[in-house]
Design a binder for these strands. Structure first.
Lengths: 206, 206
DNA sequence: ATCCATTTTGACCATTTGGTCAGGATCAGG
DNA sequence: CCTGATCCTGACCAAATGGTCAAAATGGAT
């Protein structure tokens, strides 16, 4: 995860501690949500005293918002790559694979977002209504174009995108449930990938 | 939502207040999670003083756990109805429709579960590893049977079930996001239903 | 080794939070 | 309309929480 934040600061110590704090905050916030998390908890997880942590960030709010905004960009990257000029099937399947990889490699980040959105997205609604909405409009148009050209089957482009998010993020957000149901030794992600490839292939094939 | 809880208690007032409290707690817990919610907040939402609320429930924990356990059963009902003797396609699509209806009619309940699971399911892991796991095993076997009989296309039954949960619950859990992206006047659920019918029809058709 | 900026800490504070309790208000049956 | 059971409240408490501050400790360039 490109942590655009946490790299700021001029001194060595500033960079290190900043990083530690954001890492710890990600652990805590992604599990308990903003209101359910405490500064003490984050400080402890980061190996700092509370006043020391507050030397680097002015408030709990500031840490959370730094995390979220630092994340917003890289979160949308997989969708940005969806290319109108590529092969429709390969474009869509690649997007699904990239998104599933993110769930596998950055589940905490996924849960941070999930928490935020379940709580009504108080801090990122503007970004959703702006940036994301626009991106969805753009990519939906591309997909609609493929449909009109008869290159993939008829479907609702917006809901197709929702489905991609839903299916891939599920493996991160509901990780505990998935693991509790699957046999303990089973490697979840390889099967998930095969499953989703099958699903979307059948969905878009003419 | 069958609120098996909240109907207990002998006096009229007990039944009423119990109901009010659980209703209010559902609002609060589903939005902020267990740790992010406060008794005061629930009491206020229920129109009671805090000590008065604590007259009916001994602790915050008790309210939460009553809500969750009261919900667990009705939450699994749609899956229980999946019947080995029915028509495979109709059985699966009916399940999807029932589940989507639940998202539409009981989004708070869905978010309550989502919150709980994201947080590592500390209070319901036993139920997941027991009841739910067993139910999944049973229904997976049915689906595998249909595959073996050549009545639906080859697929991973467990991941098919995950996909059904994921896709339907998404509309409740990420409601804010969906609404922020869709045109304001658009009726989300009718299109969602059509979309999911299409998706699962293509997925299972031979 | 010195010196200034950076970093860290303990002590502190106001508010919030989960929860208790004794006594007063209200209800429902006789 | 009396009475015991049920219900409700204000006052209270200890712990947790978000945050401040002055002073001590440390880092690093010279």
């Amino acid at each position: 995860m490109t942590n655009s934040a946490g790299k700021t600061g001029k001194t060595r110590i500033q960079r290190e501690k900043n990083q530690q704090i954001l890492e710890a905050a990600l652990n805590v916030f992604s599990q308990f949500g903003f209101r359910g998390s405490t500064i003490d908890q984050i400080a402890k997880e980061a190996g700092l005293s509370k006043p020391n942590l507050l030397y680097y960030f002015p408030s709990k709010e500031a840490i959370h918002s730094e995390l979220l905004s630092g994340l917003m960009d890289s979160w949308l990257d997989p969708m940005r790559e969806l290319n109108a000029d590529g092969d429709p099937k390969e474009e869509i399947l690649s997007y699904v694979r990239r998104k599933l990889q993110m769930s596998r490699d950055f589940p905490r980040e996924s849960r941070l977002f999930a928490n935020e959105i379940i709580q009504g997205a108080p801090r990122i609604l503007p970004a959703i209504e702006g940036e994301l909405r626009e991106l969805v409009a753009e990519k939906s148009a591309i997909i609609q174009g493929w449909i009109n050209d008869g290159r993939i089957a008829r479907l609702d482009p917006q809901h197709l995108l929702f489905s991609i998010w839903s299916l891939t993020q599920h493996y991160a957000d509901f990780e505990v449930q998935v693991r509790a149901i699957m046999p303990a030794d089973e490697r979840v992600y390889p099967r998930a990938e095969t499953h989703l490839e099958t699903l979307f292939t059948r969905m878009i094939s003419i």
